[in-house]
């Protein structure tokens, strides 16, 4: 138990940028390219941290503080997320604190985007709040379904309470929750089909356009925080499977790491196979995730006593 508990945060802090590399490598494979090195994100962050910075004259301290606040919020959220059934800290209701940490991060990212006074960044900010407004209820509804199933409303209690027999009794419900959280995961991390991280046109971006004016160390912090967010939200999905298999301790940790790797590959495959949705279709996609979470909840409430 203890190994996975104390390793949860260091593992995430170290491994998170690796996921970006895996995703890009998978996409390159499907496109028939060699692709960038797996550790490319580490190189990027390291190089950015060494660079000088350029700031827009329009910006204020909000713009400079936002990346730091976002990073702090996501690290605090990370201490609450279990890895293989146990997290560094846990208390009843921590899933609310967890969700609201991302709210804080989003608030400052959006406000910082508006701080530049650029119309493109305003556009990105507007889309970001639009989509995450719809993603948040889906995430919480999915988590309620899990907590009802496991009979606990702390993140580690909820995942720790899952077992193989739950899959037998309420398999479809758990699968639905996993799909719903996966959609939220894609939306919150600005991946295809909601947003394209590789797009080259300001008009079509969401997350990338919000951070358009960052440079140097600040951009490095933003990149690192984004990769941590990918890791933390991905951990929720992987945990559903790892915890239900009853794996804990060192084995659980290893399986968990493997699961994260697999998740990144899946994201890469999704990005290679799907086109981006039109912006008008994204709300439907997210509401669809919410509907699946509702369906899962109904199944849990009605048929699992």
């Amino acid at each position: 138990m203890d190994i996975s508990r104390y390793m949860a945060v260091p593992l995430g802090l170290i491994m998170a940028p690796f996921l970006l590399g895996v995703i890009n490598r998978t996409k390159a494979f499907f496109a028939g390219r060699d692709g960038s090195p797996l550790l490319q994100a580490y190189f990027d962050i390291w190089k950015l941290l060494k660079k000088d910075a350029v700031y827009s004259r329009t910006t204020t301290w909000i713009f400079r503080m936002a990346p730091v606040i976002g990073l702090a919020a996501v690290i605090i959220a990370m201490t609450l997320v279990p890895v293989a059934g146990s997290s560094l800290f846990t208390f009843r209701g921590d899933l609310i604190f967890f969700a609201y940490c991302f709210g804080l991060m989003r608030f400052f990212t959006v406000v910082a985007a508006l701080d530049t006074g650029s119309s493109f960044e305003g556009m990105g900010a507007s889309r970001e709040v639009h989509f995450s407004t719809l993603a948040e209820p889906a995430l919480l509804l999915g988590l309620i379904a899990l907590s009802k199933l496991a009979g606990s409303f702390s993140l580690s209690g909820m995942f720790g309470g899952l077992s193989g027999s739950d899959w037998m009794g309420a398999g479809p419900a758990i699968a639905l929750v996993a799909i719903a959280i996966f959609i939220v995961f894609l939306a919150e991390n600005s991946r295809i089909p909601v947003d394209d991280p590789n797009t080259h046109l300001e008009l079509t971006m969401i997350h990338e356009v919000m951070i358009l004016d960052y440079s140097g160390p600040d951009l490095g912090i933003v990149l690192y925080a984004a990769s941590l967010k990918l890791w933390v939200l991905g951990a929720l999905i992987v945990n559903i499977f790892v915890c239900a298999a009853g794996l804990t301790g060192a084995v659980g940790l290893a399986v968990f790491a493997g699961g994260m790797f697999l998740l990144a590959v899946i994201v890469g495959i999704v990005e290679s196979m799907m086109a981006r949705l039109s912006l008008l279709k994204v709300p439907q996609f997210l509401i669809g995730a919410g509907s699946m979470a509702v369906l899962a909840l109904i199944l849990v409430l009605r048929f699992v006593k």
């Binding site: 439907q284 509401i287 919410g290 509907s291 509702v294």
Partner: peptide, 9 residues
């Protein structure tokens, strides 16, 4: 879709 959820409930 909202109708779908409502009808489900």
């Amino acid at each position: 879709i909202f109708f779908g959820v409502l009808s489900l409930v």
